[in-house]
């Protein structure tokens, strides 16, 4: 895609590079760690969603021909909305439960990103940002609890 990858200008790396102990010390750049977390989290989520959708169409061949099924699917109807329901469905190889599991992974990605940031700030001994990040993480977890209490 790019014609000259070698001459591509590289932004300078940030000063805050952490080197973990060990013989094969690879420098850990916070930006790269966070970027990888986001990237792989999304990839796992989308794989589950795609797998689930494929399974659904294999198990319901009528979805390929019948337009009646669509009305049933887009009208209000109960959706699994407890963690236990989703896990049970995935165990029974129900396609839509795989999709739901993928969506839950997607929802968990930002929470994990904040948790990772907390570890990074702690390693950098940045106490002000450790405090800020802890509050953000607490608020996020509270919001999930509020949702659960309401549901």
């Amino acid at each position: 895609m790019s014609e000259a990858p070698s001459s591509e200008p590289r932004p300078p790396q940030p000063a805050s590079v952490m080197v973990p102990p060990g013989p094969e010390a690879v420098p850990l750049v916070p930006e790269l760690l966070i970027s990888d977390l986001l990237r792989y989290g999304v990839l796992i989520s989308l794989s589950l969603v795609t797998l689930g959708t494929t399974v659904t169409f294999f198990r319901h061949p009528d979805y390929l021909v019948s337009s009646e099924a669509l009305e049933r699917l887009t009208a209000p109807h109960p959706v699994p909305h407890g963690l236990a329901d989703v896990v049970a469905g995935a165990m029974a190889a129900r396609g839509q439960s795989f999709v739901m599991a993928g969506l839950l992974v997607m929802m968990a990605v930002p929470v994990m990103r904040v948790a990772l940031s907390l570890l990074i700030f702690r390693q950098q001994k940045d106490r002000l940002y450790v405090a800020i990040t802890t509050v953000v993480l607490t608020l996020l977890l509270v919001s999930f609890l509020v949702g659960a209490a309401e549901g």
Partner: peptide, 26 residues
């Protein structure tokens, strides 16, 4: 992402996240 995750929990608990629609959208 973080802002949306904070509200997504509530929508999930209310049963408003339907895999049939949210899957392809996602």
């Amino acid at each position: 992402g973080v802002t949306a995750a904070a509200s997504a929990g509530v929508y999930f608990a209310r049963g408003h996240i339907d895999p049939f629609i949210a899957g392809p959208v996602c």
